[in-house]
């Protein structure tokens, strides 16, 4: 069989399998716990007709894009800087690794006190989730660039800024995209957790609110929507990631 078709078939089988497990769980647990796939899709359609849903969705998207921008730009710049500066990188790396493995929820009270309830706290919380993998991947990519490429930049008489932009950045790009892919998921996670615990807007708030009201259908519909969107984004980023790594050979 054509490998491309086989791969698509695998995807389809995994999808069908997940739906079957979901339906099975629904039959076993019953309506008080979860809603069935069909109910969930129907409810999602009903939600989409309500203005309130779009307000929340927009609030999440707004906060997410801002966090992602901070995580991506900040992470790349800091990662390049730490990758070039050997001492700074050696000092920062263990700290960053520790921060990476720290459950960042423990920092949320501090962030709330600094930023207050609302958009800025969500953005900050999303950004601190996403920025660390971007920094770590960028930093290690810059460190492992073959020295001969940097020597070539010197022979071409490039300034440090041009060397960073024209040699270090593209050489590190495949790894940076890997970092961004992980950063993307974590930023979304951070924003949603932020909305769940201290916010009056956003899809995270909708989910936690629905749990409070025992509105299983809304909780499931929003959760499934987020899973699907994050899944699609991740598949696209993964494809880009593979492509860049293949080209770098």
């Amino acid at each position: 069989m054509n490998p491309a078709i086989a791969r698509h078939l695998d995807f389809l089988l995994v999808g069908i399998g997940l739906l079957a497990i979901w339906q099975g769980l629904f039959l076993w647990i019953g309506e008080t716990g979860i809603s069935s796939p069909l109910q969930t899709i129907r409810h999602l359609g009903a939600l989409a007709e309500r203005q309130m849903f779009w307000t929340h969705a927009w609030a999440t998207l707004d906060a997410f894009l801002r966090s992602l921008l901070i995580a991506a730009v900040g992470g790349i710049v800091i990662g390049l800087w730490l990758g070039i500066g050997k001492v700074a990188g050696q000092v920062a790396e263990p700290i960053l690794v520790a921060l990476y493995s720290l459950p960042k929820v423990t920092l949320y009270p501090v962030i709330l006190l600094i930023f207050g309830l609302g958009l800025s706290a969500k953005v900050a919380f999303g950004a601190i989730h996403g920025i660390i993998p971007v920094i770590l991947f960028t930093m290690s990519a810059v460190r492992t660039i073959r020295p001969v490429l940097i020597k070539t930049a010197k022979v071409m008489r490039l300034s440090p800024a041009k060397t960073a932009w024209r040699v270090l950045m593209p050489a590190a790009l495949p790894e940076i995209v890997t970092g961004l892919r992980i950063g993307f998921s974590l930023t979304l996670l951070g924003v949603l957790i932020g909305e769940m615990f201290a916010s009056q807007a956003g899809l995270g708030f909708m989910v936690i609110n629905a749990i409070g009201l025992n509105d299983t259908e809304t909780m499931m519909a929003v959760t499934v929507l987020m899973i699907v969107l994050a899944g699609i984004a991740n598949v696209l980023l993964l494809a880009l990631d593979h492509r860049l790594h293949r080209r770098a050979g």
């Binding site: 001969v148 020597k151 008489r157």
Partner: peptide, 29 residues
Amino acid sequence: GAVPEGVGVVFQEDASFPWANVYDNVAFG
């Protein structure tokens, strides 16, 4: 402290830029 203008160097290790095609590699400088 710096490579003077008019000096070109070719190294033993492969110094081609993997992210650029041959044309852009050659046009780099």
